[in-house]
Simulated assay, not measured.
Amino acid sequence: MACPSPSRGIYLTYFIQGLILLGALSSITAGEYFLGLSAGVAFLLTMAPSLMTRNLRLCLPWEVNLFIAVSLYLHVMGHIAGYYVSLAPYYDKVTHFVSSITVALLALFLAALAEHRGYVRLTTPAIIVFILVFTLAAGAVWEIYEFAVDQVFDMNLQHGNTDTMLDLIVDLAGAVIVACFTAIALGKEERQRFIRFFADPASGAEQTEVTDEHVQQARGR
């Protein structure tokens, strides 16, 4: 699959990735090796989608890559700059909100890809339910991770039942926004075009090339 030429927006993703890498280097220089290692892992995670989609011959929209980079950047800076503490509890909720939108977009991508490749035929309600369940499941796994880290390493990532429930509610809010966007997009007559755009951005580029070729042939006549 030949992916289309990347949009200029991809450079914004590169910029965010550079900030994460800079945070990792500054933490290591300051002797904060654990934070540096965490930021380094976050940087590698921002690279993972591009590498995976390239190896699997998929085309992930650059907007999704941007959301992934921003989500990880917010999480990294929350620890390196101490925003989780100095801007508590609002910074944590903003991070959860952006991350939930990111996860919901990934769920939409998986659903669109499955339908585009003919693996399964999904109705609009089924796609919406999948987005909501997938995002909430990811949020629940994250809360379990925080609980386990608190118990094993005696940290304070969770701040009681209220904080955990608010995190999940914010996760749900992000999922609902993406689900509503999906319902509107799939509710129009251009459902298949939207599925192809999200699961296979290259199809749009191929159609454009074909159209341009036809125009040139017509002019030559």
Rank of each mutant, 00 (worst) to 15 (best):
C180M: 10
D200W: 05
N55G: 15
H75K: 10
R121Q: 11
V152C: 03
F197I: 02
L19G: 03
L12F: 09
G18S: 13
P61H: 09
P61L: 09
T211R: 00
A111D: 05
G174T: 01
T135K: 09
V176G: 05
F147C: 03
G174H: 01
E213P: 00
V98P: 02
L108D: 04
T13L: 02
N65H: 07
L51D: 00
Q17L: 01
Y73G: 03
R57G: 01
A183C: 06
A126N: 03
T164W: 02
E63K: 01
L60W: 06
G204E: 02
R57A: 09
V215I: 12
E206G: 04
S5H: 08
N65D: 02
F15Y: 05
F198E: 08
F130Q: 05
L74H: 12
V94P: 10
P4I: 08
V141N: 09
P89R: 10
E190S: 11
D163H: 15
A81L: 14
G118Y: 14
F147M: 07
C180Q: 03
F97T: 06
R191S: 03
C59H: 04
E213Q: 11
Q217W: 08
A202G: 14
T162W: 01
F153S: 07
E206Q: 12
R54M: 11
H75M: 13
V103A: 12
G9V: 04
Y145P: 00
L60K: 06
S99D: 02
A112R: 03
Q217F: 08
N65P: 00
L87M: 13
H159C: 06
T135H: 11
K188W: 13
T13N: 06
A199K: 02
R57T: 05
T123P: 01
A185Q: 13
Y33C: 08
F194Q: 08
I68H: 00
I169A: 12
F15D: 00
S86R: 13
R221F: 12
N161S: 10
E63A: 05
F134P: 02
V178Q: 00
Y83L: 15
E115V: 07
M47I: 10
F97W: 11
L37W: 11
P125G: 10
V152P: 01
V120L: 15
F109A: 07
T102E: 06
A138Y: 07
A148S: 11
L87D: 15
L106A: 01
D92T: 04
T13Q: 03
L166W: 04
F198W: 14
G31D: 02
R8G: 14
D154E: 10
L136N: 12
